[in-house]
């Protein structure tokens, strides 16, 4: 089992898009994926070609009530930020253990920083979507300060909605690239096909198979995929050799 936390310090950076397409890519690669949206008003179903009226079941709901798209179990936990038993429940369900057999992707709203920080401590990976807006960059010091060294050691960054034709976006992307170094695992180009596919109630892969954003996010999946096999104790610092093996 593997836990991947998708959380950004700022809203509107495409965190839900990243979570959804990471799920689609990992499922295509053979992983058994569940996506848990933790937003009070979530837009996760839209990225799976579901209509806006779709209501997702909670993690406790029976499987016959769940919404499954492309083999991905979509769930909702809007009350999780205020539920002290949420993290122990994930542990009881086995998501803090190792293995690729089940993968849980958490789409955590940007405002839930404390919850995200606690979840990252148990995750095998934290994916942080950034855009090139100066407002987003301005939040990085605060994010680093709150995450601490332990949290940042699990964090990988992705530049989303990159528009290379814009000077400021290009400069800010270069700045992030220099600042993050290898922690920046990729970028997703700005692509009008993404909102168009949502408006068409189609998946991005069906609406625009040649989408630049789709190609970029698939590259990210290839990068993240090996982390599913990581022993969680390696990410959390405990001794283990299973990953290297």
């Amino acid at each position: 089992m593997a836990l991947i936390v998708c959380h950004s310090p700022k809203g509107g950076t495409g965190n839900t898009f990243l979570a959804a397409h990471m799920a689609l890519g990992l499922a295509e690669a053979g992983a058994d994926v569940t996506v848990l949206s933790m937003a009070a008003h979530d837009t996760l179903p839209l990225h799976f070609a579901l209509p806006p009226s779709t209501t997702l079941s909670t993690l406790h709901a029976p499987s016959e009530d769940s919404v499954v798209v492309s083999g991905i179990d979509l769930r909702h936990a809007g009350t999780a930020p205020h539920d002290p038993d949420f993290i122990p429940m994930l542990k009881d369900l086995g998501y803090f253990q190792t293995g690729r057999d089940r993968t849980l992707i958490l789409d955590v709203p940007s405002c839930e920083r404390n919850l995200a920080r606690r979840l990252v401590n148990h995750a095998c990976a934290h994916l942080c979507a950034l855009d090139t807006a100066p407002e987003t960059l301005a939040l990085l010091p605060q994010m680093f300060d709150e995450a601490g060294k332990g949290g940042l050691s699990r964090t990988s960054f992705v530049i989303n909605r990159l528009d290379d034709t814009r000077r400021l976006a290009r400069h800010n992307a270069a700045f992030v690239r220099e600042l993050m170094g290898p922690r920046l695992i990729g970028r997703i180009r700005l692509d009008e096909s993404v909102p168009e596919s949502i408006a068409m109630l189609q998946t991005l892969a069906r609406y625009a198979p040649s989408s630049a954003a789709l190609a970029d996010v698939r590259r990210l999946v290839d990068i993240v995929l090996p982390a599913l096999d990581a022993d969680i104790s390696i990410w959390s610092g405990a001794k283990s050799s299973s990953y290297a093996a």
Partner: peptide
């Protein structure tokens, strides 16, 4: 902290 090889970003 995890070894650089164990990090996903180490591959890219």
């Amino acid at each position: 902290s995890p070894s650089p090889e164990s990090l996903p970003h180490a591959h890219a």
